[in-house]
């Protein structure tokens, strides 16, 4: 699996779309963070980082290119058949692909963090308290987890349906319209469903962390990820491959 992971990462980093997405993300983040700093100082900086990482634009710039780079060519290239035929298990193949996505997403986040630090340093008057720094780091980690979750759920749909297009549509839906749909449902039905979704649990966990509560909501959120992984492997083990 390590060999596949290594080979795959080398392949994935040749996909131009991730660099286009990263460039757009950096421009967007820099603008949003600077706008926050100019308006509200250190509070504005934190709000700027949170706003830039939580909106649909950043998801489109980061999550979609990551999903595309890792999964978009898997079905059309029939590389899965080749790799499986060479004697790697189906479970390991799925895990390797998801690890690819997790690592790529982490790399993109690291670039974003470095860029954010550079932006912060250009505003030398801004000083974050230790608590603010911790909260900011936790926020970024939870954002990474959330975006990785979107990819896990989208990959599940792609592997079950056998359609890259459906996977991409799911990825865009999770990143852009998921929360909006639940807001609309809640508006019309007064049902508070969103809090129990993967997204909602992560929001809830962060709100708790900010006030010093234990983030127990992370446990069911991670369970969602494992459930998606279990469903994906269940269907993938039974999949009949065509040449």
């Amino acid at each position: 699996m390590r060999n596949l992971l290594r080979a795959d990462l080398k392949r994935i980093f040749r996909v131009g779309l991730i660099y286009v997405g990263l460039l757009l993300a950096l421009i967007y983040i820099s603008y949003t963070v600077l706008e926050g700093v100019v308006n509200d100082g250190s509070i504005g900086l934190i709000n700027g980082v949170q706003k830039s990482l939580s909106g649909a634009p950043i998801a489109l710039f980061i999550v979609f290119p990551t999903f595309y780079a890792v999964f978009a060519h898997e079905l059309s290239s029939k590389s899965m058949q080749t790799v499986l035929g060479h004697g790697i298990t189906r479970d390991k193949l799925i895990i390797a692909k998801l690890l690819d996505a997790a690592i790529l997403l982490l790399c993109l986040y690291l670039v974003i963090i470095v860029a954010a630090l550079i932006v912060i340093n250009t505003e030398s008057a801004i000083v974050l308290s230790p608590q603010q720094q911790v909260n900011l780091i936790i926020y970024i980690i939870l954002r990474w987890l959330r975006h990785f979750g979107y990819i896990v759920f989208s990959a599940m749909i792609m592997y079950i349906s056998g359609s890259t297009v459906l996977g991409i549509i799911a990825c865009i839906a999770f990143t852009v319209v998921f929360k909006l749909v639940f807001n609309i449902v809640e508006f019309f039905s007064s049902l508070s469903l969103y809090d129990y979704t993967f997204d909602g649990l992560l929001d809830w966990a962060y709100t708790g962390i900010e006030v010093g509560a234990a983030p127990w909501q992370l446990l069911p959120a991670v369970c969602y990820l494992f459930a998606a992984l279990a469903i994906t492997t269940y269907f993938f083990r039974r999949k009949e491959f065509d040449f």
Partner: peptide, 30 residues
Amino acid sequence: RSKVGFFVGSNFYGYLSGRANLEYYAAAKG
């Protein structure tokens, strides 16, 4: 199955060169 090589049609990444495709599969084979 690791002793078997097989050709079942054009199974490669179109955006990579022929060489890069072979490098990918060779690396995946260890």
